[in-house]
């Protein structure tokens, strides 16, 4: 059982994601970006390198200066998304990353640098990011 959010949880999802070849096709595959996640007061950073998610780390607000983009929503919204994925073996129509981005006035994805080319990586690799979080359906998750 892995606690969400934590590096352990992201590592378990990475293991599922990296081991499943299905995530390399169907619009997924070859992804190079550093993505940040602000979940409540915590910051996590995932590094996607080629076909795999090569690292998960915890950071702080300053870490977000260096990521290509980061996703930020209230803790309960993150929890709702992860629980929805677990319940449906993947996000339903209302809980995909892109839908959550669109549902918010200021969006889900943003950056500190403001470079739209780097922010656009969220769109360019959206299916891979969705595959990653959908892989969490196979991780036993507990919430604080």
């Amino acid at each position: 059982m892995a606690l969400f959010p934590s590096v352990d949880w992201f590592d378990e999802v990475r293991n599922v994601f990296n081991a499943d070849d299905r995530y390399r096709g169907a619009g997924g595959g070859y992804c190079n970006c550093v993505a940040g996640f602000r979940i409540a007061e915590k910051v996590f950073v995932l590094t996607f390198d080629g076909f795999e998610c090569s690292a998960a780390a915890e950071g702080d607000d300053g870490t977000l200066d260096d990521v290509d983009f980061y996703l930020e929503m209230p803790a309960e919204a993150w929890r709702d998304m992860v629980a929805n994925i677990a319940a449906n073996d993947g996000a339903d129509l209302h809980h995909t990353l892109n839908t959550l981005d669109l549902d918010r006035e200021d969006g889900l994805a943003t950056s500190k640098h403001g470079d739209q080319v780097r922010e656009d990586l969220f769109f360019r690799y959206n299916q891979t990011l969705q595959f990653f979080f959908d892989a969490s359906a196979l991780v036993e998750t507990e919430f604080p």
Binding site: G27, L93, T96, N98, T99, Q116, V117, D120, L121, F123, R124, Y125, N126, Q127, Q130
Partner: peptide
């Protein structure tokens, strides 16, 4: 959902070409 998401990925690459 899948149609639009996958088309958006492709389109973002094309946009990146133009901006770069």
């Amino acid at each position: 959902k899948v149609i639009y998401r996958l088309c958006a990925q492709d389109e973002a690459r094309h946009v990146a070409f133009g901006v770069m």
